[in-house]
Design a protein around this nucleic acid. Structure first.
Lengths: 207, 207
DNA sequence: ACTCGTCTGGGACAGTTGACCCACTATGCC
DNA sequence: GGCATAGTGGGTCAACTGTCCCAGACGAGT
């Protein structure tokens, strides 16, 4: 069997764990299922991690750091801010539909972190990452569309995350794509109302 | 030990299970933990339920049927629809803050149902119950405020549920009450824009 | 060629879990 | 009182889990 360099083994196991969670849920992420997914032996697990919970901490930290904002980052340069918002939200929904397991894992990991002593802060960090990731997209989107936000961008980002979380959970439950898109229509309309055309002289009060 | 009549035993165990889930999460809802919470013996469990998963099905069905809309039903008769919405959303948030475990259980059970073969439909039913419960509140709220909804009320209900779910998850993660309330401010504003004063003659196009 | 530290395979362990079983007790009915 | 039935207690089982251990294999440096 090929030997795996020490630096990669943890990452390999973490990613295998995420795949297992996507397939079987957090409860199914046993050490044996994970090493089987990673094609490793059981002993290798405890060679890489001191314990199962130590690995789960890394799993949560991994999803916080990586790919978090990537789902939001499909920024198409539309004609106006309303369309930029709508298309951004749509690409997020498309992403959820294409790979429902992934966003399901994200929410399950939030609940797992909230339940696990010592990991509660990671849930908060996960949302900070969401918010700041979306915020930068919103700043860029506003710049492209020549508008500015009439409220703090961070609050707008919170609204976007609220909507995406809510739509995700409902869609996972009832798979009603048309209803989800109507919600996104309304969200895009309402959020666009928070933007106003930028007047060249009052540029400094952005953010 | 007092004998428990047959009709109550299942309900007792289901409610005990919900308390255990609130305390320890879905993964902690073992048969032993549940019967301990219910003050019963282990044998009584399999006397009442054929299996653990059969009881979990009842747990999910129970939360779908009972109390689902109760959190929304704190309808205060405010001056206008905007205030009715805002106060309704606030009372929901107050409820989440007062008993975070309960709404956490609700979301965890949705994910559990989605993961469990044969229970996926219960997740959809849970959201149908949410939507119809909120919808009736919205209908009443509109009537009290003398407005009508310019879009199907069911869609408005979906928006409300989307917001409450999103706010719940974010608040559970970061406990940022002020931010949650700003989100609710915006939601109430935006939703109120979907209502228009009812003109006595066009009463019939209410959904 | 030798050796040392890195890594792996397989086995084993104790603890927990869902499920089951059977002797036993209470209760209502004749 | 006797008896069937509903309900209970406690013990037991196999399966599964996280964790540990140890003999050995590989590779790099000498």
């Amino acid at each position: 069997m090929p030997r795996i360099p020490s630096s990669d083994r943890r990452a390999l196991l973490v990613q295998a764990a995420i795949r297992v969670i996507a397939k079987r849920g957090v409860a199914g992420a046993t050490t044996r299922a994970i090493v089987a997914e990673a094609g490793m032996s059981l002993a290798s697990f405890h060679y890489a991690f001191r314990s199962h919970s130590e690995m789960m901490r890394d799993v949560v930290a991994y999803v916080v750091g990586a790919e978090v904002a990537s789902a939001y980052a499909t920024l198409k340069l539309g004609s106006g801010i309303r369309q930029v918002l709508r298309e951004g939200l749509q690409s997020y929904l498309d992403y959820v539909i294409a790979d429902p397991g992934h966003e399901q894992v994200m929410q399950e990991l939030v609940h797992y972190a909230l339940r696990t002593p010592g990991l509660e802060s990671l849930a908060a960090e996960q949302y900070e990452a969401y918010h700041s990731g979306v915020m930068s997209v919103l700043v860029e989107g506003a710049a492209v569309s020549g508008v500015e936000w009439s409220v703090p961008v961070l609050d707008v980002a919170r609204l976007v995350v609220t909507v995406t979380d809510g739509v995700t959970l409902a869609w996972l439950a009832n798979r009603d794509t048309a209803a989800a898109e109507r919600v996104l229509d309304f969200a895009a309309d309402s959020l666009a109302a928070l933007a106003r055309p930028v007047e060249a002289r009052t540029r400094e009060n952005a953010q």
